[in-house]
Every structure is written in C-alpha cells, then in structure tokens.
Nucleic acid binder design. Structure first.
Lengths: 202, 202
DNA sequence: GGTATTCTGTAGTGACTGCTACATATATCG
DNA sequence: CGATATATGTAGCAGTCACTACAGAATACC
C-alpha cells in the first residue's frame, strides 16, 4: 500500500468512468490517449501513473462496464420463469443499448470490432467475454429444459445462438440510430420466435 | 482519356480486390497504406496515382463489395415467393458470412464500426448502404403484403427490422468463429420466427 | 525539520500515420 | 527524331501515436 507521497488530485473512479464512455463510444483504437487526457483534464503522466497503459486502462474500463456476475444479463437470467428470463434478457439489454444517456449498443460487441496489428489481445479478451455471456444464456436454457420447463426436444444450442445473434444485431441497430420503440418491437417479434421454437420442439 | 504515357505495370482490378479484402478483414482504420502497399507490392506513389487517397480507395472497395443492384440480397429478394425470398436472404448471406475463402461477416457492418475523429463520412456512407439494404427488405415484404401473399395485419417495419437485426448479428457471430452449420441453424430458427410472425398477424 | 514516497507538468522520445516532391523511366503522338 | 503524358521509386513531409525522462511539488513517517 501507499505509505506516503503526494496525494492524487483527481477522482480515479470518475476518470475511469469517463474513459469507459470514450472507449464505449469510439472503440479501443478510436480513442487516443490525448483524447482521454483532454477529457479528464489530466497530464499524460497522471493518467499513466494511475492506470499504467492504454491497454490496462481499457481492461479496467471493460471490467467496469461488464462486472463479473453483476450485469443486466445476470439479473435477467436469475429470474425464475424461463420465458420471463428470456424476455427480460432481450428487453433490458435492448433498452440499455438505446439509453440516450449512454453510448449506443453493447461495448463488448462494438469496442474492438476491427483492430490494427499488435492489438489482438484486446479483441480476444472482448470475444472471451461475449462467449462467456453466450454460455450463460445457453446454460440457463439448458437448466430450464432439465427442470422440465422446456421440451426435451428443444435444440438448446440453436435457441441460445439465436438469442445471442439478436442481441449482437441490436447493438448494430442501436448504433444505426434505432429508438426505444423500434428495438422493443424487435424484442416482441423475437419473443414470438422464441415461443415458436419452444412449440416446434414439443 | 489517357492519350499517352507510361502504362501501369500492375493489374488495377486485382489490386482493388486485394485492398477490399484487407478493409473487409481489418476495417478502415485497421488497414494502413503501408499494409496495402506491401500486400500489393507497390510503391506509395503507384497506389495514390491509381486510387487517389485512402478514402477513395476504400470507397471503391466498398462499391466492389456491394455493387448497386447486384448483391446476394438483391437476388434473394428477386425470388417470387416471399418465404423463399426471406429464406434465401438469410441463408445466402449467412453462408457468405462464414465462407472460409473470404473474411468473416459483412463488410458493410464490420469495416467502420468505430472510427477516430475526422472519418465521419466513411462511417456514414456505410450506414447509408446498410439503411438502403434494410429498405429493400422492407419494401419486398410490403410488396408481398400488398399482393395478398402476407396478412394485412403484419407489421412490415417490425418484420423487416427483425430480419436486418439477425443479419447484422450474424456478422458478429461469424467474426466470433461460428461455422456454417451453426449459422444455418440460426437461420432455421429465424425462419420459425418468421412463420410465427406471419401466423400471429393473420 | 529531514527524508522518503508519490503525484504533477513540461517537453520530448522513436515509430508510425496518410501523403507527396522530385527525378527518372516508359509509353504514345506528331 | 522530339514533345508530351503517365507511371515508378526514393526519400521524406508534417502530424499523430503511445509513452516517458526529468524536475519540481506535495504529502506521510521519523
């Protein structure tokens, strides 16, 4: 721990929040350290002293955006009924994607789509988080099937893949300016599809 | 027209193809002119003489990828039955997204997700092409409804938005390594959803 | 107070960005 | 042939990238 030394003159958490929003909106390579310094009103040395490097700062920003086990997705999948779970999963995330007080879409999907050479790790780490979320959804559906809430004939992988695909697609749609009523319309239509999937398997 | 002068020593069309693939795979900002020069085996001056600028080269590459009125989407929407049209739309594009001989996903969706300052036009032009494709799909569904092939109660905007969302989501899934059988499974599930949408409206 | 420790601002590092001036090479046209 | 026009290769432009050496400032511990 820090035993002595000049105390930091800025709020580290607030700075991290601001950096997260920049990365969320413009992507990893779309944000320069200069932009971060300007936005935060800090000198480069202060940023590097507090966060280490651009990659480390991005990693912290991602963890702030997607905290382990405490996301909208986690809460939705924690609901008791499987249909309520799925509907909350789609609806709550869709609403977050178009929340006008935050950047559009999902940071995990949008922040590192295309990277130059030398930043493979940045993209891979986000891909791992996306995969982890997909796995959560798949396991939730599998549990519901094991508990008799869904027909045994349901193709769990395919159902989960469709939901994840729709969520990822909604991130692009949100970036393209879709509004709340439009994404919620897509969610309603997707729920009709979910019901059809379940019905077709029984 | 060129009346005289030293002739070009490389194949301009082949060079454009190679550049398109680079932009498709790595995105606009993920590709440097140096990368293009190296890949094409050309000096910077030759590239600039042939294509003008990075933005102009990108624009040509996009037009090569998405030629006006001659895409998989155009051909699918040209089929006679609306269900065949929609299924071909999803299936043919999905297969193209995971074609191992080309970069994964749709270039229009992936090549300019997040841009640094000063390249707004690049992203906006791609967004316009995405919007144009979505409009094509919407109009195809509307035509089918007007011709009595679909129930009058069908929400055309919502149905089209769901399809576009799934296509855009499939681009992300393809980037995340989904294989042919997986994306085709998603297409099958989506068609169940389409049928449910149609049924619910009648 | 003295010392150790940490933060802050200036000023700059080498590497890369898209792009180009310039000289030279190679073609067509008269 | 000479004149004109275009392509090519070298060498380098100003600007930005992530990052840092250095000196000074502000704290805690003794």
């Amino acid at each position: 721990m820090a035993r002595a030394g000049r105390p930091r003159t800025f709020d580290r958490t607030a700075a991290l929040h601001a950096a997260m929003e920049l990365f969320w909106r413009h992507g990893y390579e779309g944000v320069s350290m200069k932009m971060i310094e300007t936005r935060l009103g800090l000198a480069p040395t202060s940023v590097y002293a507090a966060f280490g490097s651009k990659e480390a700062l991005f990693e912290e920003a991602v963890e702030l955006y997607d905290p382990d086990g405490d996301t909208l997705t986690d809460r939705a999948l924690g609901l008791t009924g499987i249909r309520d779970s799925i509907e909350a999963l789609l609806r709550d995330n869709a609403e977050a994607y178009v929340d006008p007080t935050t950047p559009a879409g999902c940071m995990l999907v949008l922040a590192a789509v295309n990277l130059g050479a030398g930043h493979d790790q940045v993209g891979e780490r986000l891909a791992r988080r996306r995969h982890r979320d997909a796995e959560k959804i798949r396991r939730r559906i599998e549990r519901a099937r094991a508990e008799g809430e869904l027909p045994l004939g349901l193709d769990v992988d395919r159902a989960a893949a469709l939901l994840v695909t729709i969520l990822h697609g909604l991130s692009i749609q949100a970036r393209d300016g879709y509004r709340r009523d439009q994404v919620l319309g897509i969610v309603d239509a997707a729920m009709l599809g979910w019901d059809a999937l379940v019905r077709a398997a029984s």
